[in-house]
Every structure is written in C-alpha cells, then in structure tokens.
Nucleic acid binder design. Structure first.
Length: 992
RNA sequence: GGGCCCAUAGCUUAGGUUGGCUGGAGCACCCGGCUGAUAACCGGGAGGUCGUCGGUUCAAAUCCGACUGGGCCCA
C-alpha cells in the first residue's frame, strides 16, 4: 500500500534533481568535451565568445545572455556543424581590474601606485583577474552554457598580446594608427584622465564665478570703438583663449554702451545684458562676423597667424551667455575640435597637477582654481571685466576625491575610424541583426558618426601600446616579439611577458635616424583587446589556427550594452584589418528587470544572485522563463514567475513521461525509438502534430527565433497532455486490445523521444533526462547523449488535413459541452444524440468512425447525427437545447435522457464515487479490495446487474455483494439523485 | 539636446513586415462539470477606449504624424 512518503515531489524539485543527476552524468562521461571536440569533417559554424571580465560577479543579465547564446550553438551542433570555436574567453585588462586593486590598498592617485611599485601593482592585478571566475563557471554550468573552460583565451596571455600587436602594426602601416590630442575630463589631483562612466558618477552642485569680459575689435568705420562680449564660468581658461566662436545663422547686434562704445552680442542675449533696450548701432548676421580679428586678452599665448579671430561653429547657442563663445582649445572638447579645425595650435599653461606654469607669470605655481581671483583682478584693472557674478550649477568632479574636473587636451593615440566610416557602414549592411532595428538604429547611427577611437590609456595594467618614438618624433610600431628582439639587437628571453614592466625599459635605435627610441608610455583600451578576439584567440597569424581572414563569424550574441562596446570594436577591427564585417548574425538581448519593472542593481537590493537562483529552481526553468519573456527588450524576472512558467510546460512534460514510464515499466515494454506506423486516430494525429512541430522548431531555430521555438514546444506539450494523453489514458492499461495498447505505447514513447531532441537546445537538462530514460541508455554511456545526437528530420510537414479535422472535432466538443451544461444534464449521464445541422458535413466527419467514436465518447452521447440545414427541423424548444451560431450551423441536444441511459448514468456515478473512495484510502490501482455495497430499488438493480463490471473496475476480489437497505453507520455513504449508496472497502493483502 | 526601443484584459503575452472574419491564448477571478490526472483536466462567464490625439483608407491593434508614460544609449 502506498503511503504519504511517496507524495510526488513538486515539479520544481524534480527539475532540480534532474539537473543534478544530468550534470553528474555529463561530468562522469565527459559529455561536454565530446560535444565540443573538433570534428574536422564537419562544416564550420564560426563563433567567438565575448569575453567577460571575471573580476566581478556575474549578474542575472549575464545568465540571460548565456542562456540565449547557447541555444543556436546547441542547435547547430545537432545539425552537424562544428562550432569554431567554443573556447571560453576572459577579458583580463583594464580599469575595472586596476580599480579593485586600488580599492584594496586605498590608493587615491597614480602617484601612490607608482610609489607602491608598478610591478607589484600589476602582479596584483593579474592575481585578481580571476577572482570570480569560479562564479562565472558555476553560473554557466547551471544554466547549461557549454564552452571549453579548460583552454580559455585570456587577453593578458603573451601570445594574445602578440596578435594584438600584429594587428596594431597593420593599422599603423595603413596610416590608421596615429598620435594626436584628445580632450577629456581630467582630475588634476589624481593627475589622470577620468573615463566617461566615472564622470557620470561625480556630478555635484558647485558655486563658480560667472563673468563676462570684452574683447577689443578694430574700431567701426565711424571711429566708434567696438568690443565682443564673451561669457565664461572658468576665468582660468581665459589666458589660453585663442578664438571666439559665433554661429552663422544667429543674428548679432552692436549696441551702444554707457561709455558710447559698441558692444556685440547675439540678439537673443540682448535682454540679459542690456535690459534697458539700448540703441542698436548695427546688425550683423552671424556669418559676417567670420574672420573678424580681436586683440588678445592676455599676452601669454603669444601671436599666431590664425589666432584671435571670430570663427563660426554650430555648437554656439544663445540661451546662455552672449552668443559669442570663448574658445580655449586646450580646455574643452568643442574648443579642441574648433582649434584643430582652425589650425591655431594649443596653449596649455597647466602642469600635470593643474598648476600654472611660468608661461603665465602672474599666476605661476598656483592651482587653476586658485588663479581665478588673480586673473579677474588683472582684467578688472585693464577694464576688460564687464560683469562679475557667481553661479550655482552642476559640474563634474572626480568621483574619487571630489576635485572639480577640467577638460584638457592630452596626447593620445587613435585608430582613425573616421576614415573607415564608409567601409564600416557598408559592411554593416551585410550583418543580420536580431532584433533588426539595431542595424540602422543604435548601431548604424553610431557608425554614421564614427569618430576617431582614442586608443591609449595612461594606465598600467593593459596591453602596452607597441610604439616607440625617438626625440625626432619618428614612430616605430612593433608587430611581433621577433621584431622587437631584432630592433633591440637581441632576441627576447623565452617566456617573455609583454606587460609594461618588461616592455618599458626596452629601447632601440630609431630605424629612421638612429637616435634612441623610447616606448610611448601607454596601455591600450581594453575594448581593443576583446575586439581582437576572433583572431587573437588563435595567436593569428603566428600559429596556424582555424582563423580565416576572409570569413566573418557566423554568429555572435551578447547584451545590448555591447553595441558600442564589443560589437563595435569587433566591427571596426574586422573592417580595418580584413575589409569585411566581423559577424553575419548578431543576436542581441536586452536588460533584466525585476518583478516591478525596475532595473536590478545591488544598491536597490533587488538583484537576484544568478547562482543562488539557478541552484534553487534549476537551469531549465530559468532558461524557459527567459524564452517566454521579451528578451530583446526588457525581461521581467522573479523567482515566482520563473517557477511558474517552467512548471507549465516542463512540469507537464515531465508528468507525461512519468505516466508513460509507470505503465511501460508495469508492462515491461521497452520504448519505441523508431517511427511507428500508427493505426489509431489519436496516434496518427499525434505523429502529425509531432511532424508539424519538428518543422516549426527547425524553422524557428534556423532564424534564431528561440521564443517561437519554445512557444511551439509549449503548445505541443499542452496538446500532448490534455488531448492525446487524456483521451488515450485507458488505452495504456486496457486488456481488451493488447495490440492497441502496444500502439499507444509506441506512439507516446516515440513522440517523447523525438521531443527530447527538439527540446535539447532549449532545455538541455530535461531533454537529456528524457533521452536517457527513453533511449535505454539510462546514463550508461556518455556517447549516448541527446546533445551528441542528430537533429530530427520529419518525414512530412504533418498532415494538415488531419490537424484541421481534429481541430474541428475539438470545436464540436466545446459546442456539445456547452449545450449539455445548458440542458443541465451532467456528463456522466449518457444522452441519446447530438444533432448537428449544417449545409455540408463538418470537417471532423472526414476522420471517419474513429473520429465520431471519439466525439461520442468525449460528450457521452450515444449518437451524433449530421443533417443538412434543408432537412425538417423537428426539434421543438421544450425538449431540446439549441445553439445557432449564425455561421450556418445549428447544434441540438435533448434536455432529458431515456430511462435506460439514466440507469447507465447511475452506474457510472456509483463507479466514480467508489473509485474516489479507493483513492481516498490511498490505494494504488493495483491494490485489490473486498467490496460490499448497500442500495435500494432501481440503484440496487443497476448495481447488481453490473456486479461483474464493478468487480473488474474496482479490483474487487470475488463477487461484489449488493445488499438491500440502508448502509450501516460505519459504512461510506453517498446520495445519488435522492438514493443512498453505501459501501465498505476492505483492502486485501497483496498476493505472495 | 540627439538617437533607439517599448506600451494589447489585474498579470504574462500572440497578432503587427503583407491593413480586412468576432483581437487569440495562459495565469488569477466567478459558475458548473470531471478525475485511474500534475500547481491536473473540461465547459461557460466576466474582464480590452489594442497608451492619447490626429491623419491616410471603403476599412487601422496593424501604415503615417504628434503627444504622454516607461526604458536604454549618446551629448
């Protein structure tokens, strides 16, 4: 007898248990290695893993990306491709790594790093790179993302770096790598540029001077002295002023000041500066100001042909200031751009710590902020200071030390991506983006404005820029270790590590002039490293690898944040080096939000830890939840939603299989793996559905539509469970027709076996479980894994006619049930007939007698009669319920049944109660009982005449005794349509 | 300030390219049934201004424009 301890585990727990045992099976038999092993005879599917930085914990978004990334790879493997390459990869360099180490030491500036020792610092960076690699591997394993983690590529590997150097030299030789200036936010206290995401963390409210000064123009034709008015909140930049910018399409006016001089401002700024509506002496369309010369405010920057002029630029506005903008090319991105365009050079009188140099004697040695009052005094006494106020505004400060940042032009090396713009746009046309809008949206827009890529970093832990320069300015780019050895006149030592500590000291005579060349003291942007992955992971071109310069990757997939990150650097490098796109298909996923639609973040406390979540609900469940949501946009995720969505489909499928197995085990039948030749209507229908599903899933996965594939599987599982299995249940234990029982068994096992294959890319753990159970391998042999199996090919697209007819039949079931409900006759009471009046017989008639039997049985009617609408309608209202659909058909059901059928209904009703009683006693359906019944009159007659049926159905041993009269008080009792039924069930011991 | 995405029932969503039957499903809810049945199954019900406004059209959830709200990226 069964007991409580066998209460079935919840689907969630089952899925988790399955995951554990499948993981163990894969590990014990080396299944992952077998799946990933190279198979030279197979066609290639090119792929590269986007390398995460493993010095931070993976978050749930990483799990989403990995789950989605995995599906096409598994699918292509089953389609007979070899994925080149399944190497895992780790991004090792860059500021995030340095910051972790800085944090550990509480360093606050680069000076402190250098005092500590660059070598020690870099060693610690190297050690911290893999701090969380265990979490990444665990997460990947739990979500079922298969890569070769034993031989990953690492961007800090000397061979990897050598490939990167090779590519930089190619760019250099093509004139695509050059030295220039770059204007970027700079912390004078930390003496380092600050990257943009750091800037975003440091905006503060500050009070600053807000001053307006006048610049002297030549006098007007009538002799009136003229001045430009310019406004600034950074008086310290005024000594570096080289130009004034106006906008061509603004209207400027020259107004008469209190001193009789003429002052030029934009018309839109007039009210701010001259509220008293002064006399307008002259009007100047903006473009007429172009080239107007003015006298320098300070003498320090010195003369220059093209300096101290008005130039035109669109960045000028008139909502703030005077509509005339002071331009100091050393101290602002727009300033720098304009200065560069106008060829006025730079004047940068600040040293690395932000103090003025001797170039500006009146403030020499003072910090830039401290110099403001001194400079203002000088302007006041020369009469140039027109207005002086203070302003509160948000201003970027250093997120580490709160020092106000300044924009300054620094030396930098660039990839000349602006010159590649056309090629970048052209090769983007060959990429299939999913979702498609990224191609001409986010990514395309970015390409249209492709700016030169500031490559160099004033940092320590990164790929060193392999460029040496002599005092004469001749630059030499080194493309290999061999070349570097040759240049310095001695081969590099074995095991040479090309990081800064070893590379910085190397010097060699300049190949052009012979004077000693020194390495440019930069590392490069870590995004360049990862963009080089498709070739650098193989140490191309130094080692023969599978990399083919002419071939793009077939497929990459990462999160949306990589559009301007990895996707961009991949694209730029592929275009620059190989003149082709980097990838053919790019699958992009969106963000993971919490249940409320909020972005998950540690600070909000709503971030789910992926490893804990995966441990809790299992990888398949998490994957399934991702497929079901909108993963191209913003996927909402909660543990509850994940459990629920998994339980619907995966839990149901699990149950179907367990139903199958229970019966098959009882019968000692092995599963059928070859396609059966079905006879029974339901079997034929299921195989047709299965064929249709196979085609549907194949088509969806061919075009990377994981969502559609999962939805198709979910629909099939629902049909399988709620129609095929529900209708077929008795067939699995029927002794009446052993052949049919075999057929049902074969059909269901074949369907489940095929489904395991279709499910393999989507839910790899459950798919493996089903496959192991059904294939008979049961974990015996790692060669027999569903992930090493071939993708199923359906012999047909399904029988559309059969599907259509069955769908029609199911609609008549609905109609019949509705009528029965309105007639008030419960399903267990048979009714004599369902009448369907329709011009043509409905499609389900094409299913033949088997279909009609199915319909009759489902509706519990003795007959279904199809009539033409032209036949006499002899079904008057009191006796019949009617549904006239208005679509040309009418369905009718009698409101009452015959006495004979009522007796049949009573029997079924009694049976059901007694079955329920068995179940309430927790009897299994193989446990035998001794049964005694009490009833009167008609019910007693019914039971007595059916005692044989009762005995068989209820597994009662011996004849069922039916006693007249009321049941004793200790017996079970029910009321059936006003009659009492009593029963006593005594379980019998199992036969020895 | 610029660009992009999203908006369909209380919740999750299908449909949208190619305008056309009554906008489809699941969960939750209500009523009823059924059970050798899983967080089961079956029938019915209620629940929708398809974000708002305007346009194109014989016809708009679908195409176009503006707006509102949410999100992302850039400046």
């Amino acid at each position: 007898m069964a007991t409580d301890e066998e209460a079935p585990p919840t689907p969630g727990r089952r899925l988790r248990e399955i995951q554990r045992s499948v993981e163990r099976f894969w590990a014990d038999h080396g299944v992952v290695a077998r799946a990933l092993r190279d198979a030279p005879d197979r066609p290639v599917f090119r792929f590269t893993e986007g390398p995460p930085t493993a010095n931070g914990r993976p978050h749930l978004g990483s799990a989403l990306t990995r789950a989605l990334k995995d599906v096409p790879l598994r699918y292509r493997r089953m389609r007979g491709f070899r994925v080149v390459t399944a190497m895992a990869g780790w991004d090792c360099h860059g500021l995030p790594v340095e910051l972790e180490v800085e944090k550990a030491h509480r360093f606050r500036s680069k000076r402190e790093i250098e005092a500590y020792g660059v070598e020690k610092f870099c060693d610690e960076c190297r050690a911290s790179v893999f701090e969380y690699v265990g979490h990444w591997k665990a997460m990947s394993q739990r979500i079922g993302y298969w890569l070769d983690y034993d031989r990953p590529y690492e961007t800090m590997d000397p061979r990897y770096i050598e490939s990167v150097w090779w590519s930089l030299k190619v760019l250099f030789d093509r004139g695509l790598l050059f030295r220039g200036h770059y204007s970027l936010p700079y912390c004078p206290r930390c003496a380092t540029p600050v990257s943009s995401h750091e800037v975003a963390q440091g905006y503060r409210e500050l009070t600053d001077p807000s001053v307006t000064v006048r610049l002297d123009l030549s006098a007007a034709p009538d002799g009136t002295p003229r001045h430009l008015l310019v406004w600034t909140t950074t008086p310290w930049t005024l000594p570096a002023n080289l130009l004034v910018a106006a906008r061509a399409d603004l209207e400027y006016v020259g107004v008469k000041g209190p001193d009789g001089h003429e002052y030029l401002v934009a018309e839109g700024a007039l009210a701010r500066y001259f509220p008293a509506a002064p006399e307008v002496l002259r009007r100047y369309p903006g473009r007429e100001l172009d080239g107007l010369a003015y006298a320098p405010l300070f003498p320090y920057a010195g003369p220059g042909d093209r300096r101290y002029r008005v130039v035109l630029d669109d960045f000028v506005g008139e909502t703030e200031g005077t509509g005339l903008v002071h331009v100091a090319p050393a101290y602002g991105p727009d300033d720098y751009r304009i200065g560069e365009r106008e060829g006025v050079g730079l004047f940068d009188p600040l040293d690395a710590s932000g103090a003025f140099t001797d170039a500006v004697p009146i403030v020499a040695g003072q910090g830039f902020k401290a110099a403001d009052p001194v400079l203002l005094d000088a302007l006041r006494s020369s009469g140039a200071l027109v207005r002086e106020e203070r302003i509160r505004h948000t201003y970027p400060t250093c997120w580490r030390c709160a020092t106000p940042l300044l924009y300054r032009a620094v030396d930098s090396w660039f990839v000349r991506s602006s010159r590649l713009r056309d090629a970048l746009v052209r090769s983007n046309e060959q990429v299939r983006w999913i979702p498609a809008h990224i191609q001409h949206g986010r990514f395309g827009n970015f390409l249209d404005e492709a700016k030169d890529w500031a490559l160099s970093r004033n940092r320590y832990w990164g790929t060193p820029l392999p460029v040496w320069r002599c005092p004469g300015g001749h630059a030499t780019c080194v493309g290999s270790f061999e070349e570097l050895g040759r240049l310095r006149g001695a081969p590099l030592p074995a095991g040479f590590d090309p990081h800064r500590v070893s590379v910085d000291p190397i010097r060699f005579p300049c190949p052009t002039c012979g004077v000693e060349a020194v390495r440019e003291p930069y590392t490069i942007d870590a995004w360049y490293d990862s963009g080089a992955a498709p070739f650098a992971q193989y140490h191309y071109p130094f080692e023969p690898g599978p990399f083919a310069p002419t071939e793009p990757l077939d497929y990459v997939s990462e999160g949306l944040d990589q559009t301007r990150g990895w996707f961009y650097t991949l694209h730029v490098l592929a275009t620059a080096l190989f003149d082709r796109p980097a990838f053919r298909t790019c699958l992009v996923n969106g963000l993971v939000l919490d249940d409320e639609g909020q972005k998950m973040s540690k600070s909000k406390g709503n971030a789910l830890d992926p490893v804990a979540l995966l441990d809790d609900v299992g990888g398949d469940a998490v994957r399934w939840a991702f497929y079901a949501g909108d993963y191209t946009g913003s996927a909402r995720v909660s543990p509850h939603a994940i459990r629920f969505s998994a339980q619907r489909t995966l839990g149901t499928l699990l149950h179907v299989h367990e139903f199958y197995r229970t019966n098959a085990d009882a019968d000692g039948i092995a599963p059928t793996l070859a396609r059966p030749a079905p006879v029974h209507l339901l079997d034929r229908w299921l195989l047709s559905r299965l064929d249709g599903l196979t085609e549907e899933v194949t088509d969806a996965l061919d075009v990377y539509e994981t969502h559609a594939a999962a939805a198709a599987v979910a629909g099939f599982v629902d049909d399988l469970s709620t129609w095929y299995l529900r209708r077929s249940r008795p067939r699995f234990w029927s002794d009446a027709d052993r052949a049919d029982r075999r057929h049902a068994d074969a059909t269901l096992s074949y369907a489940l076996y095929t489904l395991a294959h279709l499910l393999a890319p989507l839910a790899p753990f459950l798919a493996e479980h089903l496959y192991q159970e059904l294939s008979g391998a049961r974990g015996a042999d790692g060669e027999r894994s569903v992930h090493l199996a071939a993708w199923p090919v359906a012999p047909t697209s399904g029988d559309a006619e059969l599907d259509h007819r069955m769908a029609d039949l199911r609609e008549w079931v609905e109609v019949g049930r509705e009528l029965r409900q309105r007639a008030g006759v419960r399903s267990r009471t048979p009714l004599p007939v369902l009448v369907v009046r329709r011009a043509e017989p409905p499609p389900c008639v094409g299913l033949g007698e088997a279909g009609l039997e199915l319909l009759r049985d489902e509706l519990n009617v003795k007959a279904v009669r199809f009539e033409s609408t032209t036949a006499p309608d002899d079904y008057p209202d009191p006796g019949w319920v009617r549904r006239d659909d208005g679509r040309g058909w009418v369905a009718l059901l009698p409101r009452a049944t015959t006495p004979e059928l009522r007796r049949e209904g009573l029997l079924r009703e009694s049976l059901r109660r007694l079955q329920q009683a068995r179940k309430d006693r927790r009897l299994r359906f193989t446990d035998r009982i001794e049964l005694t019944l009490w009833a009167r009159d008609e019910l007693a007659e019914v039971l007595r005449s059916a005692s044989e049926t009762l005995g068989r159905e209820l597994l009662a041993a011996g004849p069922v005794a039916v006693l007249d009269g009321d049941p004793p008080p200790d017996a079970l009792r029910w009321e059936l349509d006003g009659r009492w039924l009593g029963a006593r069930l005594v379980p019998l011991p199992a036969p020895a």
